[in-house]
């Protein structure tokens, strides 16, 4: 029997925009894969890169960080910091030859329920194609 792979994606959603956007998608009954395990954070800049690292090394299939569009952060500049952190994170992963496309940063506003659905659907599809996070089974981490 072939098991279908349903990715588990940790989603860090900023309280003011993306969490509201996700909520709207839900309330509007938009269809999307149930792959996201949402964690509400006050701002995308609350996401310590080590959270992402922890999630990946401990076996979650991917990490989505979602926040307000640039210029709309409720703490003014939080998401610009987030952006730099993700750039740095990806660069380190790339240099070490680790997969960078299991991490995604997406700007989703409170009114963008549709965009939230699209981001989640696309990202889930992408991870499905890639398959499970190989680190899940790695002993010598």
């Amino acid at each position: 029997m072939e098991q279908t792979f349903n990715p588990r994606i940790i989603g860090f959603l900023c309280n003011w925009c993306s969490y509201a956007g996700a909520d709207l998608a839900g309330v509007s009954r938009l269809q999307m894969p149930p792959s996201i395990i949402p964690i509400r954070v006050m701002c995308s800049s609350r996401v310590d890169p080590l959270f992402i690292l922890t999630a990946l090394l401990r076996g979650s299939d991917a990490v989505l960080v979602a926040g307000c569009h640039p210029g709309d952060c409720h703490y003014q500049y939080g998401n610009y910091h987030t952006r730099r952190r993700i750039v740095l994170f990806n660069k380190i992963f790339e240099t070490l030859g680790l997969e960078t496309d299991r991490v995604r940063l997406a700007w989703v506003s409170a009114s963008e329920g549709g965009r939230y659905r699209d981001v989640v659907t696309q990202f889930t599809e992408h991870i499905k194609e890639k398959g499970p996070n190989p680190l899940k089974k790695e002993i010598f981490l």
Binding site: P49, L53, L57, L88, E138, I139, F140, L141
Partner: peptide, 20 residues
Amino acid sequence: TKGAYRLPANTIFYHIGRMI
């Protein structure tokens, strides 16, 4: 899940984390 767990734990985590 892994069948075994390395100890001391989190060595690679430490190094990548320190790089970050």
